[in-house]
Amino acid sequence: MSAADAGERPEERSEIRVMVVDDHPMWREGVERDLAEAGFTVVASAGTGADALARFPASRPNVVVLDLQIPEPNGVAVTAQMVQQDPAVKVLILSASGEQADVLEAVKAGAIGYLVKSASKAELIDAVARTAVGDAVFTPGLAALVLGEYRRLNDEPEPAREESQLTERETEVLRLVAKGLSYKDIAERLFISHRTVQNHVQNTLRKLQLHNRVHLVRYAMEQGLDDGTPES
């Protein structure tokens, strides 16, 4: 992935407030140290879902680096609640590779990036910086998951609504991301700008999250659970 132009200078990074959630002290401390050394402001850390949600309102992080496998509530639930409380928060999933279904659920719940735990320190710092400015951080694995999810939605008996379908160009871009091409390579291959590639990728996530919310609301209405007033 190409380096993002955001958050590259340390003085900008220090304005980025980061929260680290992981139940392994070894990992948590390692990630905290790496981020602090890179100039980010680590405002909080937590080892369980409950702790993370308790510390979230007061610490007001811009970016949450979140492990999915944490003591209850799990990473997916934590993502959903944090995004509901503060729609501006950016959740970056830092997870052991292979937790496919969980990663997809977390992304649908509002996470905008995914990085495997074996990623290097440089990749982690780059991912946090890009997440902070709202860039979707896609691994090839996440791109394949999102592609698969759209195809699954299209196969559902109830036809997918237009806004929850990918355009041909979006599908093309997502496939190339899944095949490991950098945004720069994709831009060159498709004769479009780097920014356009990024927009396409982001759109695929945005639509999926929108579909997920619409789906949840419809489900709630069908179940008669929509009596309460919405919180936001």
Binding site: P140, G141, A144, G148, R152, A178
Partner: peptide, 15 residues
Amino acid sequence: SALSTTSVSVAVPGT
């Protein structure tokens, strides 16, 4: 997925 290594990335759907 079993073929993935540190240099080989394997991307598959969630289902």
